[in-house]
Computed example of a mutant assay.
Amino acid sequence: MSWEGVLFIVVGALAGGFVNGLAGSGTALFALGFFLAALDPVSAVAVVSLMSVITGLQGLWEVRDALQVNVPRLLRFIIPGLAGVPVGISLLTFIDADTLKLVIAALLIVYGGFFSFRANLPRFERRTPVLDSGIGLIGGVLGGMASLSGAIPVIWCSMRPWPKAETRAVLQPFNVCVLFTTTAMLWWRGAYDGATVTAFLIALPASVLAAQGGLMVFRRISDNTFRRLLIGLSLLLGLGIAIRALV
């Protein structure tokens, strides 16, 4: 691998690791573009998936107390999400992934763009166990179909006036579980060859250190600031998805 390729991988790992540490989601948005400059698409996705799982474990430790606050709520997202991954993979033969990405991107851009510049944040306070499970299922299906597992859960969680630790205690384990499943399937398909493992080992130290930096910022921001961060991340995620799908 050339020094230029190594540089792209390190920069992508720093960007993806930092946003994972800060928000618990959005790693692929900030890392994948850099990785694709140095790796083929399958290897790039494989590295991002495994990197997201490893750096996500740091975020899980950060919110370990909040994870115990509402375990049933967390399971309402994770169990349908895991069930949705193979469904999404099977739907790939029937649905055009690029068209789906543009639809999801439009939703993220409209939502993120509208609320990013409003003084009042959206508030949805009542318990919605059925909707929570539906959001988890959609996230799992989109994860298997288009590697977009976090897109809809980020929107949903940013609408809930939960403390930032509780919000992250849903998003982080959900993404870790779905991406771990994706990683296992990629491994089963032989994606982790020597070149991919080498790229991952190059990315790992930078992503771990950058995630620690993101976690430091996460500890210092307020609950409302974190919600605004998720809304802004929705806008950036939508723009990133649209650009990749169109270009």
Rank of each mutant, 00 (worst) to 15 (best):
V6A: 14
V11Y: 05
V19M: 05
V19N: 02
G21C: 04
G24A: 09
S25I: 13
G33T: 12
V42N: 06
V42H: 00
A46N: 03
V48A: 14
L50I: 04
M51A: 13
G59C: 08
R64V: 01
R64L: 12
V69P: 03
P72C: 08
L74D: 00
P80S: 09
G81Q: 01
L82P: 00
V85D: 00
P86Y: 10
P86R: 05
S90R: 12
S90H: 11
T93M: 09
T93V: 14
T99F: 15
L102H: 04
V103W: 13
V103K: 08
V103N: 06
V103Q: 06
I104C: 02
A105G: 02
A105R: 00
I109H: 12
V110N: 09
G112R: 08
F115D: 04
N120W: 14
N120P: 02
R123D: 04
R127A: 15
T128H: 14
P129H: 10
V130D: 05
D132K: 01
D132S: 11
S133H: 09
G134R: 03
G134V: 11
I138P: 01
G139V: 02
G140S: 05
V141I: 15
V141C: 06
G143D: 02
G143H: 01
A146L: 08
S147T: 13
S149V: 02
P153H: 14
V154K: 04
S158A: 13
S158Y: 09
M159I: 11
R168P: 01
R168D: 00
R168V: 08
R168L: 11
C177E: 02
V178L: 11
L179I: 10
F180S: 03
M185A: 13
W187K: 00
W187S: 00
R189D: 15
T196I: 14
V197K: 01
T198H: 14
P205H: 11
A206K: 08
V208C: 14
L209I: 15
A210V: 12
A210R: 06
L215A: 11
F218H: 02
D223Q: 11
T225C: 12
R227M: 15
R228I: 13
L229Y: 02
L230D: 08
I231H: 08
I231L: 10
L235V: 09
L239P: 02
L239T: 07
I241M: 07
I241R: 06
I243N: 05
R244Q: 15
A245H: 14
L246K: 05
V247K: 06
